[in-house]
């Protein structure tokens, strides 16, 4: 565990807490894409299959439980909670995310570290996470103005994988065996997808103005 990896995990945790705060405090999920939340729930469920079989550390297990639990709780809230689901912008959140699931699954069966259930599911979760933010970014562009908590949620979610890239660079130079190329490439693609969001987020922060994404 190095500082970049820890910073990445904490940033990811903050993004989840900000989203939970937004939904709990405002009893609203306006501006949040249910499809991105569903994709993230699938990412964690397919990546943490070895939750009970491959114990690495208490920290590792706790974080996995937090990510699985929070993503399922958010999906449940947005689908079932009477007040929250009313604020869901169904007609704006129209990205066909099932194609993303299919494409990532096909790619995972072709490109993986070993053709075993665990490795194919792991590669699937890595590819899916790289594109999971697309429905959310499309929704933000369509809905124009972004409320603060939603903007912060997306910002921290994008920043966490950037820290992981620094972590992989660090591990590359400090450890012999390093073949995380699947996670590296997908992580770079994932972070690149946030590039324009980061740009407009920085502009709004610099001008102390509301975050506006061009339609």
């Amino acid at each position: 565990m190095n500082i970049f990896r820890f910073a990445g995990d904490m940033t990811h945790l903050i993004s989840v807490l900000v989203l939970l705060l937004k939904i709990y405090a405002t009893k609203s999920c306006s501006g949040i894409s249910l499809k991105t939340q569903e994709l993230y729930a699938l990412v964690f469920l397919s990546r943490y299959l070895d939750l009970f079989t491959n114990y690495i550390s208490l920290y590792n297990t706790l974080m996995k439980l937090v990510f699985i639990g929070s993503s399922l709780a958010i999906v449940w809230c947005m689908r079932m909670h009477h007040a929250v689901k009313r604020s869901y912008d169904k007609e704006v959140d129209t990205f066909r995310h099932y194609y993303l699931v299919l494409a990532c699954f096909v790619l995972a069966t072709l490109v993986n570290e070993q053709f075993t259930l665990r490795e194919v599911c792991w590669a699937f979760s890595i590819y899916l996470e790289a594109v999971a933010i697309l429905p959310q970014l499309v929704l933000l562009q369509r809905s124009g103005n972004v409320d603060n908590l939603t903007g912060q949620y997306v910002f921290f979610l994008g920043a966490y994988r950037a820290f992981y890239i620094l972590n992989w660079i660090y591990r590359y130079f400090t450890e012999q065996y390093f073949t995380r190329w699947i996670a590296c490439i997908a992580g770079i693609v994932q972070t690149a997808l946030y590039a324009d969001f980061f740009y407009y987020y920085f502009i709004s922060w610099k001008n102390n103005a509301k975050l506006q994404l061009p339609a």
């Binding site: 995990d9 070895d50 590792n60 570290e113 070993q114 992981y164 073949t179």
Partner: peptide, 10 residues
């Protein structure tokens, strides 16, 4: 072993 398989990251 050869290929990195412990998936110790989140």
């Amino acid at each position: 072993e050869g290929i990195y398989h412990d998936h110790d990251e989140l």
